[in-house]
Amino acid sequence: MVIGTKWDVEEEGTAGQLLNDIVLREIMTQDVFILDITSTALEVAQAMKDNNIGSIIVSKDGNPAGIITERDIVHKVMAEDVKPSTMLAEEIMSSPIITVKSSTDVIKASEIMVKSGIRRLGVTNGDDEITGIVTDRDILTVAPGLNTILEDLIEMNREHDIPETAEFGRGICQRCDSYVDSLSPVNGLMLCEDCKEDEGYYD
């Protein structure tokens, strides 16, 4: 089934209901790894490597305080030439972490991601305990028709002072499958900024 636009989903009851019936508890990653806020960037990176994960939840006094992703490690530690063992998780985490209930449907979750400018949501069981993580990739894997919805939402929430660049376009990165607002052609592929750097290509 192909979904043409946001309005198609709203007007075609069957398609809209199908997407509304998919809730986050069905697609979220349940293996959530949590480290204390006093952990170092080195310990965070080692935990990511040992557990083959791309993000860590940071807690303070037993409560979720933020999230650290691989991108945070690269941009806030490596790119700044900081010794990982000297920087604390508190200094590099994104906070507060945005969470939603596990009963939230994928359309609502995608709207929250776009409006907040994030790729991951913490999923709770109704209280403050984070029981899972859901990414934009998780959502697009189960509901690929959402890419047009996300495109519409990005357009509606776009900052007017961000200039349009002809060589960039919105879509799904052909390497990491993330839906992003800007893609660049690199070696015959349309890649996001992170994957473009991984390919060794710089503007």
Results as ranks from 00 to 15, higher is better:
29 T>V: 10
1 M>S: 13
192 C>M: 02
21 D>R: 13
147 N>C: 06
32 V>P: 02
166 A>Y: 05
190 M>T: 02
185 P>L: 09
73 I>V: 15
7 W>V: 15
113 M>E: 05
14 T>G: 07
118 I>L: 05
34 I>Y: 02
9 V>S: 12
142 V>F: 06
52 N>F: 09
194 D>G: 03
1 M>Y: 10
69 T>Y: 06
160 H>R: 10
37 I>Y: 13
172 I>C: 07
144 P>D: 10
202 Y>K: 08
54 G>F: 03
71 R>D: 01
149 I>W: 12
3 I>G: 14
131 T>N: 03
36 D>H: 09
186 V>Y: 01
88 L>M: 12
146 L>K: 06
159 E>W: 05
74 V>D: 00
41 A>S: 14
25 R>W: 10
69 T>I: 03
144 P>C: 08
139 I>K: 03
147 N>A: 06
63 N>K: 15
165 T>R: 13
156 M>G: 11
103 S>T: 14
111 E>F: 06
1 M>K: 11
161 D>A: 04
97 I>Q: 07
183 L>W: 00
133 I>N: 03
124 T>Q: 06
41 A>T: 07
137 R>G: 02
128 D>V: 09
28 M>S: 10
78 M>T: 13
109 A>L: 01
112 I>N: 06
85 S>E: 15
77 V>N: 02
6 K>H: 05
66 G>D: 05
26 E>L: 04
189 L>C: 04
34 I>W: 05
66 G>W: 02
171 G>I: 06
143 A>W: 07
18 L>K: 12
175 R>C: 05
128 D>C: 01
60 K>D: 11
69 T>R: 04
91 E>P: 08
142 V>N: 08
182 S>I: 06
44 V>L: 13
80 E>R: 15
85 S>K: 12
93 M>N: 07
145 G>C: 02
8 D>L: 07
71 R>P: 01
183 L>G: 06
171 G>F: 01
163 P>R: 04
134 V>E: 05
116 S>D: 07
9 V>A: 14
27 I>V: 13
78 M>R: 10
14 T>D: 13
16 G>V: 00
75 H>V: 14
25 R>Y: 11
84 P>H: 03
40 T>K: 10
190 M>H: 02
142 V>P: 01
131 T>P: 00
167 E>F: 09
56 I>T: 09
31 D>K: 15
199 E>M: 12
83 K>D: 14
166 A>P: 01
167 E>K: 12
92 I>Q: 02
38 T>S: 14
118 I>Y: 01
134 V>M: 05
127 D>S: 14
36 D>G: 15
28 M>C: 03
44 V>A: 12
4 G>T: 11
165 T>K: 11
108 K>Q: 14
155 E>K: 14
1 M>C: 00
95 S>C: 00
120 R>K: 13
32 V>I: 12
123 V>T: 09
126 G>I: 01
26 E>M: 12
24 L>P: 03
31 D>C: 03
58 V>E: 04
142 V>M: 00
36 D>A: 11
124 T>K: 04
153 L>N: 10
83 K>E: 15
80 E>K: 15
136 D>W: 03
145 G>H: 02
114 V>M: 04
170 R>V: 15
62 G>S: 00
108 K>G: 09
199 E>P: 02
101 K>S: 15
50 D>K: 11
17 Q>V: 03
89 A>W: 04
135 T>C: 07
114 V>K: 07
